[in-house]
Amino acid sequence: MVDLTEKIMKYREVAYYSGCALEGSGNGYDVSTRAIAKSLGLHLKDVTNWNCCGAMEVKNIEPKLQTYLSSRVLSNAVNLDGADVVMAPCNGCYHNLKKAEYDLTHDPKSQETVDRLSAKAGHEPYKAGQAETIHALDWIKKTIGEEGLKERTKGKLAGLKVANYYGCMYVRPRHIFPEKDKGPGSESTNRPHFMDDLLAAAGAENVEFPLKTACCGGAHTLSDSDTSTKLVLNILQAAEASGADVIATECPTCHSGLEMHQVRAEKRFGRKTRVKMLYFTQLLGLALGISPRKLGIHTNISDSSELLREKRLA
């Protein structure tokens, strides 16, 4: 029993790596993550003087620089903040920190490069195993869990039909997520369910949505917009066909991709879709009785105010 509480305690206070997107276009995700942390009594400590993890771009220029950039974030969390758990809500950041951990564990050359660059840059190098990287979904799941959410939300999302969209970076490639696919209780890379679990605990009705891990074309959202629009339209139409009012998201790139290309699909191809997009943290915040404004819902592109009024959530 003691063991269990200790384990939970470990995650109640985590180093928080918000990342570039959450400071800009994904601001609603940041605001809502902080708001639910406060409401749930969880402590987020921003990683001191963090840098970009390399996103999806740096690796195409120099793969090991991406490893270095991510390792610097982990190094700061460990050495400057004394953290042993780093929580990243952005799928891209989460993926890159996990990838860095994997590379540093399995490839001595990566560790060598990180050591050399860290020394030149004047900070401690990060060593594999010093910190555990988790996603915002793991964080809520491990601390409050479904039972805790049930108690606190009293099923407030009842009547809201949700399609849970996880995207690519949270589950692929599976080898960089050694803790996933470990049977009951663990996350599945093939059919992820953590977001489904949490929102169901808050009363939402999850629809059968086949494109949970389809790609939104986020990497080419601007550089190959027609392809992205096609991929997004597929996702939006599938969500509508499965009866969803709203798509719950867990990544700023996916989220703004869905929002932007929903508009673009209408403007360029005359294909209108009505489904709304909300970050899962915004949905949980609503379920916890936090006002939409405090959750940054008004800064989303997709305007869900009418839906929220209709469902008595705003």
Partner: peptide, 10 residues
């Protein structure tokens, strides 16, 4: 035009 979805690498 590869969108880096990692389905292949997976």
């Amino acid at each position: 035009q590869c969108v880096s979805c990692h389905k292949c690498t997976n």
